[in-house]
Design a protein around this nucleic acid. Sequence first.
DNA 1: CAACGGACCTGCCTGC
DNA 2: TGCAGGCAGGTCCGTT
Length: 271
Amino acid sequence: MPELPEVETTRRGIAPHLVGRRVVGVAVRNPRLRWPVPPQLASELSGHQVVGVDRRGKYLLLRIGLGTLIAHLGMSGSLRILPARTPAGAHDHVDLVLDDGRALRLTDPRRFGCLLWTRGDPLRHPLLAALGPEPFDAAFSGDYLFRRTRGRRLAVKALLMDGRVVAGVGNIYANESLFFAGIHPGRPAGRIGLARYDKLSAAVRDVLQEAIRAGGTTLRDFVGGDGQPGYFGQQLRVYEREGEPCGVCGDSIRRRVIGQRASYFCPRCQR
DNA sequence: CAACGGACCTGCCTGC
DNA sequence: TGCAGGCAGGTCCGTT
C-alpha cells in the first residue's frame, strides 16, 4: 500500500491533531506486526507530549517525550485520528489515546507494518540508517543516479525501488516515473546515460509531488489520517492498466514481472 | 558486493 | 455456492 505520497498524506492528516497533544493512554490490542510492538510502549509514552511528526522515506517519526515512535505502514497499514473509544475492528493494533478525547489508531490487516520505539536518534536506527536520499532532496539528481549505476546490470525499476538508492519510491511510482522518463523498466541501470537519468530524477519528483497533491493513491484500502481515500489513481498512466491504450501513442500497455514485481509500461514510449 | 528467491500476512477476485 | 489459486502498495534475510 503506502509509498511516500501515502505516508506523507498520512503525516499531514495526523500531525495537526497530534502536535502539542499529550498521550494519556496506550491500548495495544494486538502487538503482532512485522516485529512485536514493544511492551514498554505505554510506560514510555503515557503523560508525554507529541513534539513533532516527521517522515523519512516511508517511515513516520512521531517525536514524543524522550524518544521517537517509528511507524511503517507496510502494505496495508493506516493511521487515523478517531474519537477515543471508537469500537476496534479485527485489525486495529494500537491506539494512542490523546488528552483531547481522540486517539491515533494503527490498523494493519496484513501485519507487514511495524511500530518501534527508540530513545536515540531515529535516523541512526538500523532500519533508517542505510536509506538513500529523499527524492525531494538536492542530493537525488540525475548525476547521482548516473554515478551510482555504472557497471550495474540490475533493472532500472528494481534500482528505483531500492531504498538504499532513493527513499520512498515503491512499485506504483517507480512504474509511473519510468513512463514519464520514457525508460523501459527492464533496462539495465548501467546502460542509461546522464541525460536520461536527469529526466528520470525529475520524473520521480514530479510524480510524487502530484500524488501528494491528490492525497495519494487508493487502490484497495489506503486511507489518509482523516479516513479519506486518495485520488491519484485516476492519474495513473500505466500502473494496473495492462491492455489499455497508452495516453501518448495509443499502443497497448504491457505487464511484465521485473525484479519479482508487476511492472507496467508502454512498449513504444519506453525504451 | 550484487542479485535473487523466500518469507512474512490477510483479503479479495477469478475461474472451475 | 464453495474452494483453490493468484495477486496485492514492502522489505528483511539467507543463499548464491
